[in-house]
Nucleic acid binder design. Structure first.
Length: 620
RNA sequence: GCCGACGUAGCUCAAUCGGUAGAGCACCCGCCUUGUAAGCGGGCGGUCACGAGUUCGAGUCUCGUCGUCGGCUCCA
């Protein structure tokens, strides 16, 4: 059921289908060889233009490849064109890729002027480290690949001949910075990204898909649809929600409150700032300080803006004695939190500095854990069904031994035990998941739901976390059947993520065409001439009275222009009314998808819309 | 935070080699009275992100600040 998945393996929007992944590993495909070989050819071209370049690694990635260089000078977009041109020439040269196995010392001789390669050779030889510095299970054979004038330390595989690459299906995409071995303490290298396909048509399709993805980007749609904005004077990562965004938020909260009430949650409210003492007690300050806004000091006391709600919920749990009979206790709050994300990490609504979390904490005894934890997973599934979200991966995020005492609380025995509890719960519930090390919270393992933004960037949407450490720090306890004190487990969960990330995701998921219940404007009445303005206003008033979010477009434009503008705002229902409709008391319905139904009695339409809204229907 | 690119009206974009800003849409005002994605005309709107500097002269060149974008790092 579970499988190991390297966190480096992207599973983004343009990824191979699930079936393809299962039947053939990417590494074994011809396209992988093509991309890997294209990376070498690019490196050759770069070295020809900039001979002092020190080259590092250049693997295939999803949709293409990159190579990281330590260049003697910065390069520009125009340089990419000349590099690309030279690559085509090299490809046309019909050079053979030759593999050669050799000893570490022989390799050192070949790469004596290449410090990064020497470091890699050391890693391969001594520690059995791969190119990212991760430990390898077995000591690998050191090999080089050679083609034309270029030699690289490489385990392959490659195409046999450069002619197996179609020069019209290769394109250099962008220049980026990347730390050597992905460590921000190391030197920043220059990374060049390229894309490569078997056929020119595939390249064309891929580029078209990128264009399409841009149109779906929530940052663009959020502006076009008047959902949110960022203002320089307010600050980066601090979204302002316009009325349309406000509606989305209200609807999501309504949904969450309904579902949580059914699932036995109680709602609480807690302040936005607290004394330093609380976060010292919770252990967040040592682990989390750099993601927190700096404290404000008043009368000698430091206050922090909360980056999470848990410590305050813990206080509520601990406010009075608890019996095993009271458990589980489920405290829910749409809490507003602030996190100081580094400036370069901000990304539209998906990564912000102020956020409203669909937060709750479930305090339970160990024997209740599985049913509580899976209850949360059920909640996820209900939400995902409702939204029709099917492109996600559930990830069991585990600790890493090396991080104990630093990134993670230092109790390996408990880590292993609790991780196993989560693993078994998921397996018993028949929920597919992958396991990834070194992704846990500092207080315990979690199930994260990974999704991808329109442009293919990966995010954690929802999360379901076990906390076996912090309740103890807060002296949380309950009296068990035997009259003894017991420390509860705490489940932190956010199935609807934060409003910011959820709405960012939903904008892209629906490409702005929200289902009726979520749509900021559900219906727009469009008179054919201004002779029907009065009737249009009446229709709108009746719909409004029935709880429909509606407007009447009574401006001076022609009907066609009004329809166009309603279409652009992705309003689900357009009610076109002319003299005939006004006389008969009916409406002509044009739906967002272009379909039409004429002469619907207004009462009938009202009933239909109310039904769509009440059931949160996904269809128009 | 780091590397690189970019920043002109509310939005999308123009402005040769430096010679003191222009279009479409939106908005406002008219005319047209219209049947399922843009009717026509007119008007309003910009200390060219901000601050220094070079120059007779800067939207165009240099430096700094802020912000955005593509990545890296980090993450709900």
């Amino acid at each position: 059921m579970s499988q190991q998945l390297s966190s480096r393996v992207g599973m983004g929007v343009f990824c191979f289908s699930k079936e393809a992944r299962m039947s053939e590993r990417y590494e074994d495909t011809q396209i992988y060889r093509i991309r890997h070989s294209a990376a070498h050819i690019m490196a050759q071209a770069v070295l020809e233009f900039y001979p002092e370049t020190k080259y590092t690694i250049g693997p295939p990635v999803e949709n293409g490849f990159y190579y990281d260089f330590d260049l003697p000078q910065p390069i520009t977009q125009e340089d990419l064109e000349k590099i690309e041109k030279r690559m085509r020439q090299i490809i046309a040269g019909g050079h053979v890729f030759q593999r050669k196995a050799l000893s570490a010392d022989e390799a050192r001789q070949i790469f004596k002027d290449q410090p990064y390669k020497l470091e890699l050779i050391d890693g391969l030889e001594k520690g059995g480290l791969d190119e990212y510095g991760n430990p390898l299970k077995e000591k690998p054979e050191i090999s080089i690949y050679q083609h034309d004038t270029f030699t690289d330390l490489c385990r392959g595989p490659h195409v046999e001949n450069t002619r197996q690459i179609n020069p019209s299906a290769v394109k250099l995409m962008s220049i980026a910075g990347a730390y050597w071995r992905g460590d921000e303490k190391n030197k920043m290298l220059t990374r060049i990204y390229g894309t490569a396909w078997q056929k020119p048509d595939e390249l064309k399709q891929y580029l078209q898909m990128l264009e399409e993805a841009k149109k779906r980007d929530h940052r663009k749609l959020g502006k076009d649809l008047d959902i949110f904005l960022f203002d320089d004077e307010v600050g980066p990562g601090l979204p302002l929600w316009m009325p349309n965004g406000g509606i989305l938020i209200e609807e999501l909260e309504k949904l969450a409150k309904e579902m949580e009430e059914k699932a036995g949650y109680s709602r609480v409210r807690t302040p936005n700032i607290t004394k330093e003492d609380l976060f010292l007690r919770s252990g967040h300050l040592p682990y989390y300080a750099e993601s927190m806004y700096p404290p404000m000091e008043l009368e000698g006391v430091k206050y922090y803006i909360k980056p999470m709600n848990c410590p305050m919920h813990h206080k509520i749990f601990g406010a009075r004695p608890r019996s095993y009979r009271d458990l589980p206790i489920r405290l829910a709050e749409y809490g507003t939190c602030y996190r100081y994300e580094k400036s370069g990490e901000l990304f539209g609504l998906m990564r912000v500095r102020s956020m409203q979390m669909n937060d709750a904490h479930i305090y339970c005894a160990e024997e209740q854990f599985e049913s509580e934890f899976m209850g949360v997973i059920d909640l996820y599934k209900k939400y995902f069904d409702l939204f029709g979200i099917d492109r996600y991966v559930m990830r069991l995020s585990l600790h890493a031994k090396a991080g104990l005492g630093k990134k993670y609380v230092d109790n390996e025995r408990l880590w292993v035990k609790i991780e196993d509890m989560v693993r078994r719960a998921m397996q018993n519930g028949n929920v597919p998941f992958v396991e990834v090390e070194n992704e846990a919270a500092f207080y315990g393992p979690k199930i994260d739901v990974q999704i991808w933004s329109a442009i293919g960037r990966e995010f954690t949407l929802a999360t379901n976390q076990v906390d076996f450490a912090v309740p103890e720090r807060f002296d949380l306890k309950f009296t068990n059947k035997d009259g003894a004190d017991e420390i509860p487990l705490c489940i932190h969960r956010a199935p609807l993520s934060t409003h910011e990330r959820m709405i960012g995701f939903l904008i892209e998921h629906y490409a702005g065409a929200f289902p009726v219940w979520l749509a900021p404007e559900q219906a727009r009445v469009i008179p054919i001439t201004d002779g029907q303005n009065e009737y249009a206003a009446q229709v709108a008033a009746q719909l409004r009275a029935a709880g429909v979010r509606v407007s009447a477009d009574l401006g001076g434009e022609r009907m066609n222009a009004k329809i166009r503008s309603a279409q652009l705002m992705k309003v689900p229902y357009m009610l076109v009314v002319g003299a005939n409709e006004a006389d008969a008391g009916v409406v002509s319905l044009r739906m967002r998808d272009g379909s039409q139904q004429n002469n619907i009695p207004l009462a009938e339409f009202v009933t239909m819309v109310k039904e769509k809204i009440a059931t949160r229907s996904s269809t128009l």
